[in-house]
Design a protein around this nucleic acid. Sequence first.
DNA 1: CTGAAAGCGCTTACAG
DNA 2: CTGAAAGCGCTTACAG
Lengths: 338, 338
Amino acid sequence: MGEATIRDVARRAEVSVASVSRALNGLDNVRAETRDRVIKAAAELGYVPHAGARSLSLARAHAIGVVLPDLHGEFFSECVRGMDKEASRRGYLLLLSNMHDDGDQAAVALRAMRGRVDGLLVMAPHIAPATLESALPPALPSVMINSHAELPGRPALRFDNRSGAEAMVAHLHANGYRHIVHIAGPQGNVDARERADGYRAACKRLGLTPHIIAGDFNEEAGEAAAQEILAGAIPVDAVFAANDSMAIGCLHILRTSGKRVPEDIAVAGFDDVPLARYLALSTVRVNIAEMGARAVARLIDMIEGKDQVRASETQTPELVMRATTAPRTASPGGAAYA
Amino acid sequence: MGEATIRDVARRAEVSVASVSRALNGLDNVRAETRDRVIKAAAELGYVPHAGARSLSLARAHAIGVVLPDLHGEFFSECVRGMDKEASRRGYLLLLSNMHDDGDQAAVALRAMRGRVDGLLVMAPHIAPATLESALPPALPSVMINSHAELPGRPALRFDNRSGAEAMVAHLHANGYRHIVHIAGPQGNVDARERADGYRAACKRLGLTPHIIAGDFNEEAGEAAAQEILAGAIPVDAVFAANDSMAIGCLHILRTSGKRVPEDIAVAGFDDVPLARYLALSTVRVNIAEMGARAVARLIDMIEGKDQVRASETQTPELVMRATTAPRTASPGGAAYA
DNA sequence: CTGAAAGCGCTTACAG
DNA sequence: CTGAAAGCGCTTACAG
């Protein structure tokens, strides 16, 4: 019972384990006849090398740890897909660990990675830099994605949330909207904060009065914000949510309450999830799959000693204009589906 | 340089590595004073045990390998989310590997798992049973999700696609539709085949003439099918796509071509992705997150010797009736958003 | 309660 | 070109 080991192969091929190792790893200091015997024996036994033992001896796991927060649907899958694509292309496996919303769990998740991976990809928009820094194994190459401040020696890849938000406000302004309300993301989340900052900055520059409703990135928060807006205490002709989920929740409630979008109120989001296209929701596109792949590429370069610089990178998001923010002078008519 | 090892801790605490191991693993045959010294030394050194070495010595990795095909957005994330939740609850990590559409890659992916994981979760609706059987390490506990035939000793968890499809056809029939076209999934995919089988069986039972258009589970296939339907060669009053993506593509083209849904043509899908709710698309709901969690639970039970029976399980999908399949007598009016 | 030693399954100088 | 041996970082009988 149990899988065959290198010793079983050695015995069957009547050579030493050293020769088996050399033959199977394609080293050239093996006689052709020996190599053939080894390969034959391995095939007969269905031998597959034990990756755990191999990585202990090589001090290389050919795996990278991925620590992600609780991400909404498409965002998560796109991110992992991008990572997996690049990782498998370069012969690495992904060890996944969800990290929920507190720092202790993050530390546990990171510790569990020790001795299994050659590097770490961390997305922690909600963890304070100091907490993160102390939880990260100092010697392990790591790339931070969309996280708080810069950590020394660890490249940070991020979206330029601020300029994305500014672009959206400018777009709304250009299309004739003057009372733009922002539905913010969760407290302490760095993406949320930067998007709100961009909103505020653009309002200031354009002479608009900012008004922020608190939210948490979930659809329900967008629905609640819509109710608040429908109550009518403040003037609103456009809503800019800090992500698409909230924008969609808001849109849904506004429409089912009889409001026309964008004729009565324009709605915009952030992220460009696939749903956005179908709802004709204007938004700011971030390419998370590409960022995931890029993060893996950078990390593997670091692991393999090809990246001494460790520079951070910023991806500029792209404004996506759709029907929910059409110019105020647009002809009336439903835009629910375009 | 390099992380601290158990020997560093032993040296600093002035005990043997055996005592360090015992103290840190909470065994009771350690004097309290010794334990304290060890814990103190470990903390001072920032010692984290090397999981790779630990699992080699214990012959237990506390990790499970997940091999998935290329899944569409929500389906993938929901599946992994369900798995991760249960895995982390029970102290296991997930080692992820995407398997693209061919058997060779599957074998490579599975081999790479050897010696890193205690068991395997395999979703391979597109791989032939014989190929799969030969690629699976015989001694490794495995649970099959939505895959072809039963493999001995490996529980299969699956959706009852057939009855789900039958229920949808019956629903369409009950609502007055008589010319129901099916857009099928890819050749060789077991889900696709079962859904088509259910469609055919229901048509036969209800005295309807089946008509199947080939597809591949992608949105574009739904769009192409819509074009074919719009060409008008065959009578169609309802379209039942083998998954939501194709249904959505079809819906999109029908509507932008001026067809009213469901007044002119009803549309139904399969899966119940989040988008479906927003488009008021009728569909058949499969709870993939729950199935993922369940698969992990079953696998860990097997690993821990708590499951001798290894019974397969079937999850019955649920019919979700929305506006795109409203009764033929329904009052006219847009149903794009409900 | 504690330590020296063997062993988990590999790789790789080292010597021949 | 090949093999015996040490070592990767742990755990655990075994003896004391």
